[in-house]
Design a protein around this nucleic acid. Sequence first.
DNA 1: ATAATTGCAAATAGTTTGCACCTAC
DNA 2: GTAGGTGCAAACTATTTGCAATTAT
Lengths: 148, 148
Amino acid sequence: MNSEPSFIREKIVRLETCCREHGMPLTVQRRIIMETLAGRKDHPTADQIYDVVAERLPGVSRTTVYRVLEAFVDLGVVNKINSPEAKSHFDADTSRHHHVRCTGCGAVADVHDQRLNALKLPTEHASGFDIVDYSINFVGTCATCRGI
Amino acid sequence: MNSEPSFIREKIVRLETCCREHGMPLTVQRRIIMETLAGRKDHPTADQIYDVVAERLPGVSRTTVYRVLEAFVDLGVVNKINSPEAKSHFDADTSRHHHVRCTGCGAVADVHDQRLNALKLPTEHASGFDIVDYSINFVGTCATCRGI
DNA sequence: ATAATTGCAAATAGTTTGCACCTAC
DNA sequence: GTAGGTGCAAACTATTTGCAATTAT
């Protein structure tokens, strides 16, 4: 219908590089799963991605979607997001950013705020952890759940 | 063997109050599940709690442990912790604190640091969320996984 | 007394695995 | 050509549900 947005293209290019570096073939499945995930601003579950992918690629296996997403996480091109629900959510945006979760409906939105990216890492923490990164989970209520 | 540590007693007292306020009977199961969870510094899963509780209370049902923990979360006396694994972890410490997760083995430790509790909440966020709280997930490597 | 909770058994949701066939390089 | 990926069916893990029996207040 129309040409692909540039941020999706960039993600695919990065994936191509990554796959080549790791001797992993870039299959149709991998390409389409990445295009699908990169095109979304929410943080879909594996199953939600599967549903969309299955339309463009009839016959894909749910298994493949799970495996490919896991592979992307291992490659570092996709992040797995913690959620109080049982299922995993995925995010193709691997730059440092944070999330707000609505206590009402569970919706998640990104929080991009430079001031939050300068947190001083607690180095040499008491329990002996070597801390390298962080992300903040904000908790609140979304506009819909506040009844606005 | 010995008397119960005071922080466990305090938790139980708080639970008693909470149950009374909500017209919920304080059953043996609830008491023991709370004692078990409050006595631990790691962040056990429902199943891990079940295993311990089952020793003191032969015949408890796994179902009950799941239900009771969920009830505690609803009461606000226990927190459910997000984890990249499929299973939920629980924490009887509901004061504001943060967590570090080891990328190697998945171990989680608490991070208590006053300086991290003064973060300015992004109010009236672009996406219309009303933000009321937050917690920080640090990511790093634990001493064991660093091979120390 | 009685309203709520518990235990059981069975169901469900999400995810993983083993293996034969297929495909990108 | 060949290493690695994919699809299928079945297994598995974590969690939930309906319901009759039980218990705290």
